[in-house]
Design a protein around this nucleic acid. Structure first.
Lengths: 203, 203
DNA sequence: GTCTATAAAGCGATAGAC
DNA sequence: GTCTATCGCTTTATAGAC
């Protein structure tokens, strides 16, 4: 045959997964650990095992493009695993099941409090302005999906809006607190308490 | 014994206030805005109006000493304005008054959500390790003072511990969220909701 | 006590060999 | 596609004039 390079055989999930895609979780961890300004190219070359030349080949836009790729990757994950399930959960009990699923996935994503939120890391300092749209959209999308599910679960408008803010703030704050006192268990306890209290006052 | 401890001289508030002390709020703002790694000496010289020579004269230990001085200053403020009043509030209603005072001062300190928490900024990234003790002590001291006041207000041990974590996480998360979506009002709403719910379920 | 000059290292980014 | 070498600039920190 003339073109064997794209002969993907019969395997269904045989995605090539470019080096660029494979690199993104590594980049994410470095940005998370050090922040944008602290994530030097030296740290990135060390963490990725790739030289600067390769990095600029994969990300011609440099650090800015790397961070944007990471943010898009995170957004994709949350859209797929949290926001869409939340939006597509049904009415009443089904909406509550979507919210339970959210708590479960969030605990899993943040490794039960051992991993911090990169969007939160970026949000707190002035690099936020560089990625303002993505930082804002992440929380706005999450808030919209959660608020809608709360409405479908039977809450009134004010109640849903209040819970939405409280849950999102609770998650972010629990991550900060857990890391500050170096006790990830605080994160899990705080989320469990939020979830339990939400159900206790449920419709 | 009369309280002669505070009767040092006739002048009540005539403190010279060294340049070092005067500089600390400026440094705090720069660290808050950019994080430790983003707070370059160029930004500090620009923000302070002092040359590098003067800065190293006032802080021979460089950036590390500046950040430590800022953290100590913040700790002093919270001890004086929040933790001690909290610890010295009495039983029952008086303890609740101490907690109300805490909410009021916290809202004032963070400029109703327009200013972020430097301890939180440091906590999220790996510079935390450099200042781990101060970062941890800030939250541990706060938690201890608040937990104790909650106990004195009539809560049982588990209830007080849960509320302590929930309030501290709520404050930190509200700061993250407010800044991420660029809406300081979220901070005030979240704190008001916490305070109101605390009173609604009070002893 | 504040400054400028400068050292020495690190930074992001680019060029070009292979 | 990955590398090394290097540019130009910024970084922290020091030295020394005033």
């Amino acid at each position: 045959m003339t073109d064997a390079t794209t002969a993907t055989t019969a395997a269904p999930a045989a995605k090539p997964l470019s080096q660029r895609e494979e690199l993104i979780p590594v980049l994410a961890e470095i940005f998370r650990a050090h922040g944008y300004e602290g994530a030097s190219l030296a740290r990135i070359t060390e963490g990725s095992g790739l030289g600067k030349g390769s990095l600029y080949y994969l990300f011609p836009g440099g650090k800015d493009e790397m961070a944007n790729a990471v943010l898009s990757h995170i957004d994709g994950w949350f859209q797929r695993e949290v926001f869409i399930p939340l939006r597509e959960s049904g009415e009443g009990e089904d909406a509550m099941a979507g919210i339970d699923h959210m708590f479960r996935e969030v605990k899993r994503y943040f490794l039960s409090g051992r991993k911090v939120c990169l969007i939160g890391v970026f949000a707190l300092v002035n690099v936020r302005d560089r990625f303002a749209d993505k930082v804002k959209d992440y929380f706005v999308d999450w808030a919209a999906a959660l608020n809608d599910a709360l409405l479908r679960s039977g809450r009134d408008v004010d109640d849903a809006a209040g819970w939405t803010e409280e849950i999102l703030a609770g998650i972010q704050g629990a991550l900060v607190l857990a890391r500050a006192i170096d006790d990830p268990a605080v994160f899990v306890r705080t989320l469990d308490r939020l979830q339990q209290r939400l159900q206790a006052t449920g419709a």
